[in-house]
Design a protein around this nucleic acid. Structure first.
Lengths: 109, 109
DNA sequence: ATTACTTATCGTAATATTGCGATATAAGAT
DNA sequence: ATCTTATATCGCAATATTACGATAAGTAAT
């Protein structure tokens, strides 16, 4: 096998899983933190900042873009990446709802 | 290759990535939702609720347990699973800090 | 047009994940 | 002791991910 049975699950379950999966990698977390902290959007300074090969960074950026979490704009030779606010908010809501549905029953098993 | 270069990243980046990775699967999201909604902790009713084989569910539970997100207590023949509140809170904080560090600069590139 | 620079893509190797049948383990009931 | 039930583990096949060197594709400057 090796393929997730998405048919079985709800749209929201799949959506949240996809968004989380895109973020669930230390390199992609680091990339997002860089993009956020360099208020204006940075480009391929990422290759220098993190210690990964250019091809690897480019691949991670592609995954974040595919998930809709970031957006890339061509600016001459460089490409400027920034957060896609819509997806960011959507993820915050989905994850917040999910995590918030749990209240510690203090003492269970 | 195929192995993540964890040495390069901070402890918190790796920690958050590991926790998110454990959750970033629709089946595991569904499992957690079941555990939460069946206030007292449920057991292998999960196999019936979700449409996955017993071996598959057991494997997903193992991953959630390894990540410290749930906890299993043996109760006779059955095993009772419930959320591990410490990890849950930790994840909420890490993710909240991460997501909250972004403020829409409205208009970037 | 040639050069320099930035980013994307291709191909590949190593490893991880997903799912499941089969089987093992363990506890309760008969 | 044997049977039943519940869960875990093993082994396997299919697929996905991670990382990178090599190379392509695009733009800017000379």
């Amino acid at each position: 096998m090796g393929l997730t049975k998405t048919e079985i699950f709800s749209k929201e379950q799949n959506e949240l899983a996809l968004l989380l999966k895109a973020i669930a990698h230390p390199a992609r977390i680091a990339i997002l933190q860089q993009i956020i902290s360099a208020k204006a959007c940075i480009c391929g300074d990422l290759v220098e900042e993190l210690g990964l090969a250019q091809a690897t960074i480019s691949q991670h950026l592609k995954e974040l873009k595919n998930a809709g979490i970031i957006q890339g704009t061509i600016e001459g030779v460089k490409v400027c990446y920034c957060i896609e606010p819509g997806t960011w908010n959507r993820l915050q809501k989905l994850f917040g709802d999910f995590m918030g549905s749990y209240v510690d029953p203090n003492g269970c098993c």
